[in-house]
Design a binder for these strands. Structure first.
Lengths: 192, 192
DNA sequence: TTGATTGTCTAGCAGTGCTAGGGTCGAGCC
DNA sequence: GGCTCGACCCTAGCACTGCTAGACAATCAA
């Protein structure tokens, strides 16, 4: 059985390699540059190997998104843990979120912009996605204010951050006053 | 000279046809379905004709975006004109914005999601885009609150709306409580 | 009627995601 | 140790994409 186990390990390792390479390529040259041929060449296998791991390019994007969601959750929790008081936590959360989006644009796109074939806001939503939302909820829930459902408040705040992140990166918003916009958002939306 | 004028008119008419057809196709089957071949077939000309009007697909998307921006500005102004008082105006604006995004998803994508080769937040930003932003500013500027720059407030509010629009349509947010989210946004962000 | 210019189309390029089918190699049995 | 068979992977190819060169036809000025 040890031979089979080794093969399974190697397969899992290769799958990680595919996802990591796709992510790397996307961060370097954008998702358009992530073609199955280029990806195959970088992992030093032929194209069909990709399809033995994933149904298609879409699923590879989905895998990158899941990995990214896990990392984002960690980053958000780390940022909020270091802050004192609800107001500071929310501010830290917002900055950490935008920072993650700016530092990992391709991953962010995979999560929220591209079609990775993932289910959102569903019972069969993958765990990392639920957890990333939970990380938002933990800090945002405590500043929702009376009579406002914490989840609904979180969704709204998240949408605002998402709008800032995407419009800024797409050149629709000048990047200079990002900090002021975040402050405005936190000041007005969060009730401390 | 009348012959040349007629030709020019016909060319302009064909250009409108291209843009309208691209938009129609995109709204019906998504932008992925808008290929140069399909588009050419629908306008009953060969592909190269498209390239005598536009540098490429990207510019066609840009043309659809510009047309859409003009329509959005009209829709927003119509909605706010019918409302009494700053608070009601902002609420009407927000609803009209999300309504436009929902009713014209392909146009909305062309404007804010896809690369149409347009310049944003620049001095050489095309007029329709500036005007759409101006339409937002007209109603949002009056509820920015003391010490907050109207343009910055407008950008932030707009980003929040954009986040709601895109996340909802991409299935990242459940569509049920959109109205509650909008109310929350207006209540907290707008200072009346 | 000719010559030139403008306009359009056919055909093709390099690239895309994805897959069928053949071949190789190694694991497991005698 | 040798053999068989199945898992694995690669070559080659499909139908499609955006875009363009070059041939051809229609229209204009002289």
């Amino acid at each position: 059985m040890s031979v089979q186990e080794r093969k399974q390990r190697e397969r899992a390792e290769r799958e990680r390699l595919i996802v990591a390479t796709a992510r790397e390529l996307a961060e370097q040259q954008g998702w358009d540059a992530v073609t199955t041929r280029r990806l195959a060449e970088r992992i030093e296998y032929s194209q069909p190997v990709l399809y033995s791991h994933f149904r298609g390019k879409r699923e590879i994007i989905g895998a990158v998104a899941l990995k990214g969601a896990g990392e984002m959750a960690v980053a958000l929790r780390a940022a909020t843990a270091a802050a004192d008081g609800p107001r500071a936590r929310v501010a830290a959360l917002a900055r950490a979120y935008l920072d993650f989006a700016e530092r990992n644009p391709a991953v962010y796109d995979a999560m929220f912009q591209l079609d990775g074939g993932l289910a959102f806001a569903h019972e069969d939503t993958p765990e990392p996605l639920k957890d990333a939302f939970a990380a938002l909820l933990e800090s945002l829930g405590e500043v929702a204010g009376d009579g406002v459902h914490p989840a609904l408040f979180t969704e709204t705040f998240w949408a605002a951050l998402h709008g800032l992140a995407t419009l800024t990166r797409a050149g629709r918003l000048p990047p200079e006053h990002t900090e002021s916009r975040v402050e405005l958002l936190v000041d007005r939306l969060a009730i401390v």
